[in-house]
Design a binder for these strands. Structure first.
Length: 555
DNA sequence: ATAGGGTTAG
């Protein structure tokens, strides 16, 4: 044999074998009947799979009479990785009828595939198979089951599998932790984290990633900082995943200084980290700075994607000046992103918020693909500019084209009604939303309804609407209700609302200011004074009168 | 002799 066969096979174990080489080797192996040997066939199959040539891999599989577990698993895995789930599962069925039985790796691979395919049914069937084949306690199977159930939102099933394992290994702990992380289960995550340490398992960077994900807003910033401290203690804070996630954690919490300082430790931040930082800055209201960082990213050779462009456009829409928005429009155009739905919706939103509804409308008209998000943008733009009937027309058009309206669609419609003072249309949309489209009203919808009904002075109807809501009632709704009372000088209703608020300890400074203004208008200085003392209000504005600031005047 | 289980963000 003058072909250095061993060296060819050895090359197979290096990942970068060109496909032509693999074919050559395949031909050789067929010629020498080595494909009969499951060992060599498996190697070739794996390398076809690496080169995205599953057809050849499957051909070879068909020609290999003696099929080892390695051979089956390699091909199943190749299909699963290529997201050809039907092929993977049909092979699995063939396997069940063959002389080789699936092992823990077969199940692990298919369990993962079923979660990637959002196929809870198959996942449950496979789980059954795992239990039946006695692999229930296998770490590899069960860690995949835990991850798969969590990914599909079935956290109870995930934790059942997890708690069935007496002494989980690090990967299992981490699977469970990221399961909690993905669903924002902070308390459970923290509890598990301390439990694993009590059991003597040292957390690693994966554990920290799972925990960091649970920190989703500024109310839990303290915990987030403690987790950050723990990363330092473990020495995993310089892991890129960890650093990047810390940046987005601090951005979500609007704790932009910390986001900066963590970001600064990255040598080469990737696109998503830049995006997290930029959207954090924009979330904090500093659009100018957000744009500066976007420019800096570009200067450093970073290239934005559709999602970042949409984020930056949202920042532009908060500016009083349309110029930067136009620049980003140009950028989107040059990079070929202007016709992506996400970008064009953001563009139309930006133009209309910057006061150039016509430009926004042009973007809308030239959009090739429209989805419900784009329709929502144009409906809300028209509504904000007082063009309610045009907004209604577009809504009908979206329906005719078969788009399914969502919560945001009705927010936009109700907003349009508010701006145009169309109380009856608002009532009608509010009714249709539930009866026709089965969409439950959210806080925003109720706020619009309160404003709308309040406009007409239907205070009784407004109050009944709010009464019908389940506790806890959002503060925005109370605020809208109080404004109605104020506008119509209905102090009686304001009293009822105030009782509800104070009785439930829901009062905050903006309610207090609103209430004390109302009480002052009503001449109830005792109450004004009480509120003032409680909350340090020093100014009052009476309708038609000047500011009253001294304590004496109150009395 | 073969491989094969857990991250990620806007």
């Amino acid at each position: 044999m003058f072909i250095p066969f061993n060296s060819l096979v050895a090359q197979l174990s290096k990942l970068k074998l060109p496909i032509s080489r693999t074919k050559e080797l395949h031909a050789f192996i067929i010629k020498t009947h080595l494909s009969q040997d499951p060992f060599y066939a498996t190697r070739i199959i794996r390398f076809y799979a690496l080169n995205n040539d599953i057809i050849s891999a499957h051909n070879l599989f068909d020609k290999t009479p003696h099929r080892s577990i390695y051979l089956w698993n390699s091909l199943i895995r190749a299909y699963a990785r290529a997201h050809k789930f039907r092929n993977a599962f049909s092979l699995f069925n063939d396997m069940l009828h063959s002389e080789v039985m699936p092992d823990n790796f077969t199940y692990a691979c298919l369990v993962k595939a079923s979660s990637e395919n959002f196929d809870l049914h198959s996942l449950r069937v496979l789980h059954g198979g795992v239990v039946l084949s006695g692999l229930r306690l296998d770490f590899i199977c069960s860690s995949q089951l835990v991850s798969a159930y969590s990914r599909l939102g079935c956290i109870t099933d995930a934790s059942k599998v997890f708690s069935g394992i007496a002494e989980p290994d690090l990967v299992l702990w981490n699977s469970m932790l990221s399961g909690y992380g993905g669903l924002g289960e902070l308390e459970k995550g923290i509890k598990l984290f301390s439990k694993m340490q009590i059991m003597g398992v040292r957390p690693d960077e994966y554990s920290m990633v799972g925990l960091i994900m649970t920190i989703d807003d500024s109310s839990v910033l303290k915990t987030g900082e403690a987790i950050h401290g723990f990363c330092l203690k473990l020495g995993v804070e310089s892991n890129d995943h960890v650093t990047s996630l810390l940046v987005s954690m601090y951005s979500r919490c609007k704790c932009i200084d910390s986001a900066f300082s963590v970001f600064g430790s990255l040598v080469e931040p990737d696109l998503v980290t830049w995006s997290a930082l930029i959207s954090g800055i924009s979330l904090c209201g500093d659009s100018v700075k957000a744009l500066d960082f976007f420019r800096e990213m570009n200067m450093k050779g970073g290239k934005a994607d559709a999602s970042l462009i949409a984020t930056v456009l949202t920042a532009c829409s908060q500016l009083a000046n349309v110029q930067p928005g136009i620049e980003i429009h140009g950028y989107a155009f040059r990079h070929g992103y202007h016709s992506e739905v996400m970008v064009s919706s953001a563009l139309l939103d930006m133009y209309s918020k910057c006061g150039f509804l016509e430009f926004g409308y042009q973007v809308y008209e030239t959009m090739v693909f429209k989805n419900i998000v784009s329709y929502n943008s144009i409906i809300s733009s028209l509504g904000l500019h007082g063009l309610a009937s045009h907004a209604f027309q577009i809504f009908e058009k979206a329906l005719e084209e078969g788009h399914k309206p969502d919560e945001a669609t009705f927010s936009a419609l109700l907003c349009a009604c508010c701006h145009a003072g169309l109380v009856n249309d608002g009532r009608e949309y509010f009714r249709k939303m539930k009866d026709h489209f089965g969409i439950l009203a959210n806080t925003e919808h109720y706020i619009y309804m309160v404003k709308l009904l309040g406009m007409e002075g239907q205070l009784r109807e407004v109050y009944e609407l709010v009464q019908s809501l389940q506790e806890p009632i959002d503060s925005g709704i109370w605020g809208a209700l109080l404004s109605c009372c104020d506008a119509h000088q209905n102090y009686e209703l304001a009293d009822i609302v105030a009782c509800r608020l104070f009785g439930n300890k829901l009062e905050n400074s903006s309610y207090r200011i609103m209430l004390s203004n109302m009480y002052a208008s009503d001449g109830r200085w005792d109450l004004v004074n009480k509120l003032r003392v409680d909350s340090g209000i020093t100014k009052l504005k009476l309708p038609g009168k000047s500011w009253i600031t001294s304590k004496k005047t109150f009395l």
